[in-house]
């Protein structure tokens, strides 16, 4: 038996909305520690890792580890039916191939029950090493989204260069070139407005912009985004979900053969 209650159904709705274009089907692994999902996009270039800790839920019960394969577009259809301030309760048991989403209005006057069919998904889980990164940049998530969208109108790829003074994003295309340079900014009123650059050694990497633009759909989930880079390694783009976990996106670099 699995049962979990979230204060805001809107949170899970936003999470699924942010990843469903990248991965259409995925298996949620449920255990005593929480709900986890790891899936590659269909071209196997990027990877999404979602972790929702059990202590971030209002109620969490998983008697034994349990896998729930879901079509994320179908899941999104149901989550869209939740009211803005509804609570969400998820229930499933191994006896039937269904997960139930219960949406309850704040005054308890409306209770909606949606049952989603679970599916068997064969997926390869990858072990992600706990690596030290050469450079870590934290910046407002809206700023990162603006940069990748702006550069997406110029070129297909972005060259990211981190030095101790700044992080540079550069793109080139048929119409010309663009470079956006962000300096470290620590003296801000709100911590989430900071741009923080931690550099062990300078890095310079190139990535396909369309994936980064896709990752930035998670912007509304967190005010700040953390980008971790090491030479010839996938970039990590992390959105922290306050009090419950994170969504991490990994993207393999483009490397000259």
């Amino acid at each position: 038996m699995f049962e979990a209650q979230m204060a805001q159904a809107a949170l899970l709705k936003q999470i699924i909305e942010s990843i469903r274009e990248l991965i259409t089907e995925a298996t949620f692994e449920v255990s005593g520690t929480g709900m986890m999902l790891q899936a590659m996009d269909s071209s196997h270039v990027s990877l999404v890792a979602l972790n929702l800790r059990s202590d971030g839920f209002q109620l969490f019960r998983a008697d034994r580890p349990f896998s729930m394969g879901m079509n994320l577009n179908h899941m999104a259809k149901m989550l869209k039916c939740a009211g803005k301030d509804d609570t969400l309760t998820m229930r499933a048991d191994e006896a039937n191939d269904l997960v139930t989403f219960l949406f309850e209005s704040p005054g308890n006057e409306r209770l909606a029950e949606f049952e989603l069919k679970l599916m068997d998904i064969t997926s390869e889980n990858l072990g992600i090493p706990d690596a030290e990164y050469s450079a870590t940049v934290s910046m407002p998530s809206a700023e990162f989204q603006r940069i990748v969208k702006d550069l997406g109108s110029i070129g297909d790829t972005v060259e990211i260069t981190v030095t101790k003074d700044d992080v540079r994003f550069a793109a080139s295309g048929d119409i010309g070139n663009a470079t956006i340079k962000c300096r470290q900014l620590l003296d801000t009123e709100k911590p989430e407005d900071r741009t923080l650059i931690e550099m062990v050694e300078p890095v310079n990497l190139t990535f396909a912009l369309r994936y980064l633009i896709n990752f930035s759909k998670a912007t509304s989930l967190a005010p700040s985004v953390t980008i971790k880079l090491s030479t010839e390694m996938p970039v990590v783009v992390e959105y922290k979900l306050s009090d419950i976990g994170y969504v991490r996106f990994y993207l393999a670099p483009k490397i000259e053969d």
């Binding site: 990877l47 996938p234 990994y250 483009k254």
Partner: peptide, 14 residues
């Protein structure tokens, strides 16, 4: 696409 590596080149299968 040229030069685009797959993510499985970097992370091992569990």
């Amino acid at each position: 696409p040229p030069g685009q590596k797959g993510i499985m080149n970097f992370f091992t299968k569990k």
